[in-house]
């Protein structure tokens, strides 16, 4: 994950469903194809939600990991 260059970061800590998804969508819209977004959430449902969202929208979930209470996602725009 450390070798993935991140174009923008989005902090969704403390936010609950569906805000992390809605903010991620908005942030991805501002990227060019191939650029990456790092999103950090504390909502335990976000792992399933991000999997579903990337599957549906065709964006790539490059990686996701948990660090304490933080769920960290790297998404590449399709």
């Amino acid at each position: 994950m450390s070798d993935t260059q991140v174009n923008i970061e989005l902090d969704c800590r403390g936010l609950n469903c569906p805000l992390p998804i809605l903010k991620t969508k908005k942030a991805i819209d501002n990227l060019n194809s191939g650029e990456t977004l790092k999103m950090v959430a504390t909502d335990p449902g976000s792992t399933n939600d991000m999997n579903a969202w990337t599957k549906r929208t065709g964006n790539e979930l490059v990686s996701h990991e948990q660090d304490g209470n933080d769920y960290i996602f790297i998404i590449r725009k399709k």
Binding site: C17, P18, I21, L22, T24, K25, A52, W53, R56, T57
Partner: peptide, 11 residues
């Protein structure tokens, strides 16, 4: 409103 906003975010 949750389902509608999320569905639009899912294209």
């Amino acid at each position: 409103f949750i389902l509608a906003s999320t569905a639009v975010a899912m294209d």
